[in-house]
Amino acid sequence: MEKVGPTSTAAAASGLPPSRPVRWSLVRKVTLALVTILLCTLLVSGFFAYYKFESVYSSLVQSRYSFVVFTIKKRVEDNLNLGLALRQLRQVQDVLEREKTRDPQVIAVEVFDARGEVLFDTDRGAIGSKVPQDLIEAIRGGSSQAFGTTDEDNLIVGLPLVNNLGKVEGGVVLRYPAVYVNHGVTGLLLHLLKTGAEELAVFSALAALGLYVLFGGVGRKLTGMEHTLNAVMASGGSALPGGDGFETHFAEFVAKSREAVEHIRDATEEVGRLDRLQ
C-alpha cells in the first residue's frame, strides 16, 4: 500500500490515538505454538520409543533367564517323577551353582518347597530361610508359564515345580539385577535425549525462520497500511489500492474517513461562521 501526497508518521497529528505497541508479534505467537508442538511430539515419540525398547529388551532378557529356569525345572521334575522328595535332591545344589557360574549376571538361583522354605540356593547361607509370600502365591497355580516379579533392585523369574501327579512341590526362581536391563537401555535413552535436543534446536530455528517469512509479510503490510491511514488522516492525500480486495477496500475506507473528517470540519467551520454572524 502506497501513500500519495503529504506524509506524516505522527499519529498525533492526525488526531488518531498513538500506535499500540506490539507485545506478542504473530511470528512469536505461532513460533511458540509450533515449537511447543515439536517439543511435545519429540517427547512423546521418544517416550514411546524408549518404553517399547525397554519392554522388548527386558522381555528378551527375561525369556533368556526363563529358559535357564525352565531347564532347571525339567531336571528337578525328572527326579521328582522318580519318586524322590524335593528335599532329598542333593544334586540340585550343583546344578544351581553351575548355572550361576555360567552367567555372571545371575545373582542367585534358589529352589524352595511349597511352604516357601528355601531348600537349595546358590547363596548357601540362605538355605532354610523363607521366600516372600508373593513367590509362594505365584507358584500356587502350577502354571507352565514363567512368572516375573521384582525384589528390591533385582528382577526375578520363576517357575513352579510340579510332580507327575500335578501337585506343586515347590518352585525355582532366578534373580538377576534390574540394573542389567537399565544399563542395556541407557544407550538408547542418552541417544534420544541428545538427538531430541539437537533436533529441537535446529527445527525450532527453522520454524522461526519459516514463520518470519510467512507472517512477517502480514505484519509489514498491516504496519504500512496503518502508517498510510495516519498520514492521510493527518495531512490529506489518498491511499493507493493495493494488490487485493482487502487493500482496495482499505483505500476506500481511508478515502471515506478522510472525506468524513474534511466534511465534518467544513460543516463545523460553517456552523461556527453562522454562529459568529450574530
Binding site: P17, R20, P21, R23, L26, L222, E226, L229, S257
Partner: peptide, 17 residues
C-alpha cells in the same frame, strides 16, 4: 497485542476520530 491488534487499534481509532 500483535500486529493485527495494532492495526485494528489504529483502524478503530480512525472511526472513533
Amino acid at each position: 497485542d500483535d500486529e493485527v491488534g495494532r492495526f485494528v487499534h489504529g483502524f478503530n481509532g480512525a472511526i472513533r476520530h
